[in-house]
Amino acid sequence: MQSQSRLPANPSRTGAKGFGSLIKWREKMIVCVAVVGHQNNPLYVQSFTDADDALKLHHIVHCSLDVVDERVNNPKKSGPTLNETFLGMLYPTENYKVYGYLTNTKVKFVLVTTDLDVRDADVRNFFRRFHAAYVDAVSNPFHVPGKKITSKTFAERVSNIVKSFGLSSAG
């Protein structure tokens, strides 16, 4: 996290140039969640914005995998955090914060949010519920492991989780 502190802190300058940042600013908004397989293949990428920014979000998710790899290969901490699945913030861009989560089967969950002061507890809670939804989805006997998750139920559940994100702390 030390190295990240040097990154630009002023969100006034538009980041991710060239992709026309079309995101409408909304408080506490998750713009994208993704499931990435253990071979870094996208299993599920879903954006929750109205804008046509799927490509950009794909890029962001893809890039954050570099950080996941880095975290996994150079675990700074040990002991109680050895089996920690929550990876913390991966990749603060100027408009987004990217959080990561790594399951024991090396499946990565990535969360991209526009909420720049999100609470870690909220994110942890989100990932916990997301993980449960994922486990249910891949437990479907008709799901082929390593293939994209096409389950509608999963999509619905994820969208519910996303909608309820941050609500608990809002009060």
Binding site: K17, G18, F19, H59, H62, C63, D66, E70, N73
Partner: peptide, 22 residues
Amino acid sequence: YLFSSPPLLRKYGFHLVLSGDL
């Protein structure tokens, strides 16, 4: 990003794309 060790290939790609766009 490419020269850093370990190489951050995905960021390399992303920045190349950004740069190409510009």
